[in-house]
């Protein structure tokens, strides 16, 4: 997942005097939209009906948990956020929020969200949310991000958990359908993020983050994008034949994976001169398409689940 948010409206605020919006920005609201949407799909695609208010609370607590991990990520990464153009205006590097405040907010919201998700639904869901926060903050942010170029691949698991948590909140268990939704987001993350790394080229170099573009070179990154996109396409289209798929999902998956593969192939074929000549037009288009790709796939899963209530969805 990526967070491209900047907070330009608060630039005039004096250092150390945070406004409510600054604390909200710590929760990475743009990332939260993806978390909310995929968790909602997991919850609604589950075969067990959930009371609407409990469902609302479950999504809210999952979102708060995701936001808490974002705050803890910003606390730990304040030093590299300061170096990267994309993140320099975040509340901590901009001096509007103290690092300790972000740490306190992140820890408090983590505990709150996990406990209340457990109380509202079940402790499997609460435990999965706690593990997700731990994975994102400790495994990805503190460990992998600065130590291996595979940071995005393994760290992407953190962003893949929300639909599984939504499913667990509804059913109290983790089924194969939840694992498929997890895998879809997990396999989608590397090509999505590496495309970003290709056109935000100096940011990661300056910050010393061992992105694939820095450690293995940009040619290797283009190869990696293509390989992961092929694997993702196989998984995404294959999911169409499972219980969460159906004709609508399959049609969406075939079209979007065709476009995604075309984009990955074009990225693979290009060299740096061609990319610089058109200011990374293809890479940027691929990145934008990747956002639509994930939302459309999960939207189609949701639609299939909705149609199933009227006896229309799926293959049955």
């Amino acid at each position: 997942m990526t967070d491209l948010s900047t907070n330009s409206t608060l630039e005039t605020t004096q250092p150390g005097e945070a406004q409510f919006g600054d604390y909200f920005a710590l929760l990475k609201p743009r990332v939260m939209t993806l978390v909310v949407f995929t968790a909602l799909v997991g919850l609604l695609a589950a075969p067990v009906p959930v009371h609407p208010f409990i469902g609302f609370c479950a999504i809210l607590f999952i979102a708060v948990g995701g936001g808490a991990s974002g705050a803890l990520n910003m606390w730990w990464d304040a030093d590299i956020d300061q170096v990267m153009k994309r993140t320099a205006k975040r509340p901590i590097p901009a001096g509007r929020v103290e690092p300790g405040e972000a740490l306190g907010l992140g820890l408090a919201l983590s505990a709150f969200s996990c406990v209340f998700l457990g109380l509202a639904t079940n402790w499997l869901a609460g435990g999965l949310l706690a593990f997700t926060i731990f994975f994102y903050v400790v495994i990805y942010t503190m460990w992998l991000k600065r130590s291996t170029p595979q940071n995005i691949v393994i760290g992407g698991a953190a962003g893949a958990f929300p639909p599984m948590i939504g499913w667990a909140a509804a059913t109290g268990s983790v089924g194969i359908e939840a694992v498929l939704m997890f895998c879809l987001t997990f396999m989608w993350t590397p090509p999505h993020f590496w495309a970003l790394a290709l056109f935000m080229r100096s940011d990661y170099d300056d910050a010393g983050v061992p992105m694939l573009t820095v450690t293995h070179g940009r040619r290797s990154t283009r190869v990696h994008i293509l390989v992961y996109t092929v694997l993702l396409a196989a998984l995404a289209i294959g999911t169409g034949f499972t219980s969460i798929g159906g004709p609508v999902y399959l049609a969406v998956a075939v079209v979007l994976n065709g476009l995604f593969l075309k984009g990955a192939w074009e990225i693979f074929r290009r060299d740096e001169d061609a990319s610089e000549a058109d200011n990374f037009k293809t890479e940027k288009a691929f990145f934008k398409l990747s956002l639509l790709y994930l939302f459309a796939h999960f939207g189609a899963i949701l639609l299939e689940a909705g149609l199933a209530r009227f006896g229309l969805g799926g293959w049955a």
């Binding site: 005097e17 945070a18 406004q19 409510f20 409990i54 609370c57 809210l60 509202a120």
Partner: peptide, 27 residues
């Protein structure tokens, strides 16, 4: 003025929290 805005935000959050706990309890 800035602190007022922040305090209003915290106040609304607390009210929302009460509503959520009450609603969850009722359900």
């Amino acid at each position: 003025k800035r602190r007022f805005g922040r305090n209003v935000g915290v106040g609304l959050l607390l009210v929302s929290f009460i509503v959520i706990v009450f609603g969850m309890t009722m359900v």
